[in-house]
């Protein structure tokens, strides 16, 4: 499979999972939430400082349809993580995969 096609396929899978399949996810508390509530670990827990964020709790503020709101927030999240992560990895990466380091010209390592 060609790289471009593979990468686009991988992205599409993520978008479908976050934008569509997420609607069918279990809404039960996760392991930590459940144990904390059962045992009282959460006695001093506080509200999240970003609880008024437009994307708080995986919904888009102002969008009333639950499926649309959740799906949209998932798609936005995938986009933001891809932009942030992809940007970071692109900056951090080794430059010029095909160039041999010995042949690099001086003063070129910007």
């Amino acid at each position: 499979m060609k790289s471009g096609r593979f990468l686009i396929g991988f992205l599409l899978v993520s978008l479908v999972l976050a934008g569509f399949v997420s609607h069918y996810a279990s809404s039960s508390p996760d392991g930590l939430e459940k144990v904390s509530a059962d045992k009282g670990v959460d006695a001093h827990s506080r509200d999240h400082s970003m609880k008024d964020s437009p994307l708080a709790d995986y919904g888009v503020k102002g969008v009333t349809d639950a499926r649309l709101s959740g799906g949209l927030s998932g798609v936005i999240g995938v986009g933001v993580v891809l932009a942030l992560g992809g940007g970071l990895f692109w900056v951090v990466r080794r430059r010029g995969t095909h160039a041999t380091p010995q042949q690099a010209r001086p003063g070129q390592d910007a």
Binding site: L11, V13, L17, S22, A25, D30, G31
Partner: peptide
């Protein structure tokens, strides 16, 4: 590098998919 960015995006998506594990408990 592009695969790494997409892997991060995939993990974000997969973390939205809580699956039931026991009575009234889920995991992702």
């Amino acid at each position: 590098a592009p695969l790494a960015g997409l892997t991060a995006a995939f993990i974000f998506a997969a973390q939205m998919l809580n699956f039931p594990v026991a009575s009234g408990t889920s995991g992702h």
